[in-house]
């Protein structure tokens, strides 16, 4: 049984200390050790994620290079008229993708943005996303046997989930069967 005096003595011990000394009596680690240890863990996960992200980005670029080859026969343009041929069928085609950065790179960007200027990682991300969206549009066209897509428009939306902020790239156009 702990007496009242003992409890108040404990409380006195705590409140007469500075906040960073509170844990000293109860654990071998000081609060600074904890900050350093947790910081190292967070940094390790972040750096691993960053390396993995770089590898995944390269893999994605390679896969896009491959997928673009059979799609070359589908022509895409932004004009509203068809000049070369009489069409048989018309449909609306949409290709979209949501892409995001890894957290470590997001952190780098936050610091990089203090001085402003070109934000290269983001440029790469949106270019990659837009290319993927266009490939998906063309793939859908290919599945329906469409060989010409006219009046293609691009839109970019910022999507925010509960934890993560991402960008959505959309490409849409009118597919005509010739």
């Amino acid at each position: 049984m702990i007496s009242k005096e003992e409890i108040s003595a404990e409380i006195d011990k705590v409140i007469h200390k500075m906040p960073w000394e509170w844990l000293n009596d109860y654990s071998a680690m000081s609060i600074w050790d904890m900050v350093v240890a947790n910081g190292l863990q967070v940094l390790t996960v972040g750096v691993l994620g960053w390396l993995l992200a770089t590898w995944l980005e390269r893999r994605h670029l390679r896969s896009m290079d491959e997928r673009e080859i059979p799609l070359q026969k589908i022509t895409v343009n932004t004009s509203k008229r068809i000049t070369s041929c009489e069409p048989e069928g018309t449909t609306l085609l949409i290709g979209s993708v949501v892409v995001a950065h890894d957290y470590f790179r997001t952190l780098i960007i936050v610091f990089r943005n203090i001085v402003g200027g070109n934000i290269q990682p983001y440029e790469r991300l949106v270019q990659r996303g837009r290319r993927e969206a266009l490939i998906r549009l063309k793939e859908e066209a290919g599945l329906r046997g469409i060989d010409k897509v006219i009046n293609v428009r691009f839109t970019t939306n910022s999507v925010s989930g509960r934890f993560l902020h991402a960008v959505e790239m959309v490409a849409y156009g009118t597919g005509v069967k010739t």
């Binding site: 979209s96 995001a100 991300l125 989930g161 509960r162 991402a166």
Partner: peptide, 22 residues
Amino acid sequence: DIGAFFKGLVGGEIKGYSELLI
């Protein structure tokens, strides 16, 4: 959303959100 949080560690396409928007 929790899936998206973990996908955010490496970045790239967030399939859950892609599906949602499509």
